[in-house]
């Protein structure tokens, strides 16, 4: 009797898991407004695009493909780039999206710029139920995040994080974080509510959709024109001075490095070159890969107020202080093109 019951339970469980895996395999990519639009656009124009920029709002609002291309052209190099940046897209989601994009890439793709930042393990609680937080929680990325959570040391001191982005999760938050990420993984694996995605996908299958998120030049870049208000300028300068005074070189954590290594391997496998970019953050910590391997060597860091003073003037910063406005974005795009062209010239990037 017991044996029979256990067999039936195992059978039901297997059928459940198998069906979930099957659904996961056949279900379309979820319809997520800014990401899906960019994916559709890229699929439609992949034969023309050879350079991609992946990252958060600091790529989306700060790196102009048209300026980058014209700067490269001025240096004798023809590029056609597209900005795949999305507000709030950090390393876990970024690498997941990259894996979805690369199989559809054409042979023309040569360079992939990835915003480099430590893997976030905590989120704004208000976003915890959002689709954006959940959809990229596959086994690999969830495992990386969970490993990072376990590395929170017992003294309550956390691993180095860019406080300006996520804040520092405390030791006592470990269980909550574990619960959050594991439940997101479970929801994702169980395809919870994904019939909604199918309906959304069906509605958008024609390909033509709202292009607002693709920006004015339809290249994925969407600048913001607001300037840092004068009352905040002083506090920005003060925080910057403090950050410069404590600036140091620091190795990236293992989980971040592992995800970057995998992304780099995927890009190299597709015949393209990965380039990691640190955007002009207020935080001046210079991160580096502790165990550089193939593909991880090229890191272009721009969070250096001494080297790039034009990116740290209060006139080019946004209200949030860690972002650039349109004027700053134009400068940043030029600097990226300049550093990239130089690296190509030196042969550090092929």
């Amino acid at each position: 009797m017991l044996r029979c019951s256990l067999t039936n339970i195992a059978l039901a469980l297997c059928a459940f898991l198998f069906t979930n895996a099957f659904f996961r395999w056949v279900l379309p990519f979820p319809e997520i407004p800014p990401i899906s639009e960019k994916l559709r656009f890229y699929e439609a124009h992949r034969d023309q695009i050879d350079t991609l920029f992946f990252g958060s709002s600091r790529i989306y609002q700060e790196l102009s493909p048209s300026i980058f291309d014209s700067e490269m052209r001025a240096r004798g190099l023809e590029t056609k780039s597209f900005n795949f940046g999305v507000n709030g897209m950090f390393l876990g989601e970024e690498s997941y999206l990259l894996e979805k994009v690369l199989p559809h890439a054409s042979a023309r793709l040569r360079w992939v710029f990835i915003e480099l930042e430590p893997l976030p393990i905590s989120f704004d609680p208000g976003n915890s139920g959002s689709q954006r937080i959940g959809y990229w929680h596959d086994l690999r990325r969830t495992r990386a995040v969970v490993e990072e959570i376990f590395r929170l040391d017992s003294a309550g001191r956390t691993r180095a994080k860019w406080e300006v982005i996520f804040g520092r999760p405390k030791q006592e938050q470990r269980h909550d974080l574990l619960f959050l990420h594991l439940s997101l993984f479970t929801k994702n694996f169980l395809n919870l509510g994904q019939v909604r995605d199918v309906l959304d996908w069906w509605q958008h299958r024609s390909g033509e959709s709202d292009r607002i998120n693709l920006g004015p030049a339809v290249d994925g870049y969407r600048p913001i024109q607001v300037r840092l208000p004068p009352d905040k300028a002083a506090s920005f300068e003060e925080a910057l001075r403090a950050s410069m005074a404590t600036a140091r070189r620091k190795p990236l954590d293992r989980a971040t490095e592992e995800i970057c290594r995998r992304s780099a391997a995927e890009i190299l496998h597709r015949g393209a070159q990965p380039i990691f970019v640190v955007t002009p953050l207020r935080d001046q910590t210079q991160f580096f890969f502790a165990q550089p391997a193939t593909g991880l060597a090229t890191v272009l860091s721009f969070n250096d107020a001494t080297r790039y003073p034009d990116l740290y003037q209060t006139s080019v910063r946004l209200d949030s202080m860690s972002h650039l406005n349109e004027e700053g974005a134009q400068n940043f795009s030029r600097h990226v093109a300049e550093r990239f062209a130089a690296a190509l010239h030196e042969g550090t990037i092929k």
Binding site: L13, L17, F18, G129, K187, L192, G193
Partner: peptide
């Protein structure tokens, strides 16, 4: 038979979850 029911139940449960709203 019970094994068929068990397998069917597992498949049905997985199918039902597709329709659960995320809120």
């Amino acid at each position: 038979p019970a094994p068929v029911f068990a397998a069917g139940y597992g498949c049905a449960a997985a199918g039902v979850l597709l329709f659960v709203p995320t809120h």
